[in-house]
Design a protein around this nucleic acid. Structure first.
Lengths: 128, 128
DNA sequence: CTGTATCCACCAAGATACTG
DNA sequence: CAGTATCTTGGTGGATACAG
């Protein structure tokens, strides 16, 4: 549909072409990043992930894992035992994304204090 | 509330401490990144931003700019002319964030084809 | 153990109309 | 020009029950 330009580079807004829409928006949801980070060190099983990521529901874990699998970030392997065991691990693509995201989260962590201070100031000035 | 560990580093889930929740989630919305990228090269006025970022509504532009201002990423300056002129620009903090985000978007752009291919494959295998 | 299937509440976000 | 005020709605995500 449209686009903006930044640093001489076109950033598309339409859903087909825009990397922001297609990638950043996908992992900008509530759980994607947390799940990927939980898989950075080693593969893990469904229920183990569920207990490590506090607050996530079974439904959201399943759904988010499916989305990550669909995008090629996560590989799902079923071991036909009884009871069945399902392991999730990052693909090479997923590892690359995680590394990129880590840069951002790292920045966020380093500047967390500044941001909280800015918020506090803003709220004081615009006191309700 | 809880936390997960990644690379030997604790990633908190509670709203007070978690940098993912506090920063990534904030800019993971529909418009924040696009607005910041629109301001990377130079400051801009409200209506100019509105026309450059196609598809954004007046309401969302105002609201997202307020949030970015509150977090200290954007500076708002009012010039008391007639008609009034309001300029928005990135702060140093905002420039730092934009740079970090750019890394991610850049990665996304480079691997966009892989992701789309993965999706296509997934959808073929799981044909409805 | 690893899911799927429903139902439902909430809220982000669009449309529209109005204002300093 | 640069907003604010309402109203409405689609979709995200939680709770719960059930199944292979």
């Amino acid at each position: 549909m449209g686009s903006i330009k930044s640093n001489g580079r076109r950033v598309f807004l339409n859903d087909e072409e825009c990397p922001i829409r297609n990638v950043v928006a996908q992992i900008g949801d509530k759980w994607s990043i947390l799940i990927m980070f939980a898989l950075i060190d080693a593969p893990d099983r469904f229920n183990s992930l569920k207990s490590r990521i506090e607050g996530i529901s079974q439904r959201m874990l399943t759904q988010t894992l499916r989305d990550l699998e669909r995008d090629g970030f996560v590989l799902r392997t079923v071991y036909p035992q009884v009871p069945v065991k399902v392991e999730y691990e990052l693909t090479e693509l997923g590892k690359g994304l995680s590394a990129s995201v880590w840069t951002l989260v790292s920045w966020a962590d380093d500047h967390h204090a500044d941001i909280r201070k800015a918020r506090q100031q803003y709220d004081e000035v615009n006191a309700e």
